[in-house]
Design a protein around this nucleic acid. Structure first.
Length: 291
DNA sequence: TCCATTTGACCAAC
DNA sequence: GTTGGTCAAATGGA
């Protein structure tokens, strides 16, 4: 029950932030309006992240065994991102670590870019290091595997998979696994204002940029900030690709939140999650009025 | 020299 | 047996 209270508090916080954002968006002109909005969005994101975390942890306790979505299914060992080990819901597997199918918290997004060269919208502000690429059966494009650059230095086991949607080279499916525990992740979680201001050169967001966000499954409480604002340090790792002008098509990553993309929720195994996700939807601002 | 990317191989889930 | 996810050696760039 405590979780519910905390959840309600977080959601209330989100709602409040949304209102402030709406107010700002209604104001014309302010030079710093963009910054303010970004800060507010960042705040919202943090609250949503915490809410999700709370909801999931609560779920775990209540349900015991997650109604494992297929993708979740696997073995916890695979915790590639290792956090699986902490999942109370899967104690049985806590011990191992597998190279395979992850069952830990994950959520996906779809990011659309304006052109094959434009991957700006994929920049999620974290530093990722590519560790593999595979051709996926039935997929036209290979899937790239990334993990946090700070995996070893800071023990951050966040990872993500990026793949071009077949049939639409401009659309990227990005699946995040695990939560960022590195400094970058913390920063972006703590209502830190958009770092874009901190020297990051982001490509102009394509007007048509669009992104869809969906939470696949989060089987453990460690969830996280999947998408975060570009809190990345300039020139960090793979991110540098984008910074450098996002000219490479070889680095399809980055995030959602960074863009002014339109986000929409796709399937979510959990009703609550659906709700959360909607917060990420560009339209949620309108919806929030009715909350 | 350091760090990121590429790529083939390994291993476990299915 | 097939497929997906990860490892780690090789390679290249800064």
């Amino acid at each position: 029950m405590e979780e519910r209270c905390a959840l309600a508090t977080e959601l209330a916080q989100v709602l409040d932030t949304v209102r402030q954002l709406e107010a700002h968006m209604g104001v014309k002109g302010g030079a710093d309006r963009g910054e303010t909005c970004r800060a507010l969005v960042s705040s919202m994101r943090s609250s949503v992240d915490r809410s999700i975390h709370i909801a999931m942890s609560s779920c775990c306790v209540v349900l015991g065994a997650p109604e494992s979505p297929p993708s979740a299914g696997g073995s916890p060992r695979s915790g590639g991102s290792d956090q699986a080990a902490d999942s109370p819901c899967r104690g049985a597997h806590a011990a191992g670590q597998s190279k395979k199918r992850k069952t830990q918290p994950k959520w996906s997004t779809q990011v659309r870019v304006n052109s094959v060269e434009d991957v700006g919208p994929l920049d999620d502000g974290f530093s990722w290091r590519k560790y593999g690429q595979k051709d996926i059966l039935g997929a036209k494009y290979p899937r790239a595997y990334f993990r946090c650059t700070h995996r070893h230095t800071q023990g951050c086991y966040a990872s993500k998979q990026v793949q071009r949607a077949h049939g639409d080279p401009l659309l990227f499916d990005v699946v995040y696994h695990g939560n960022h525990t590195c400094a970058q992740g913390k920063h972006s979680n703590s209502q830190r204002p958009q770092p874009a201001a901190s020297g990051e050169h982001r490509q102009p967001q394509p007007a048509g940029g669009q992104e869809r966000i969906s939470v696949g499954q989060e089987t453990e409480g460690g969830v996280a900030p999947a998408f975060s604002f570009p809190s990345k340090q300039a020139g960090a790792d793979t991110g540098s690709d984008f910074q450098a002008g996002c000219a490479t098509t070889a680095s399809p990553f980055m995030s959602p939140a960074t863009s002014e993309c339109k986000a929409s929720t796709t399937e979510s195994p959990m009703g609550d999650m659906d709700f959360m996700l909607q917060l990420a939807d560009a339209d949620f601002l309108d919806n929030s009025r009715y909350l």
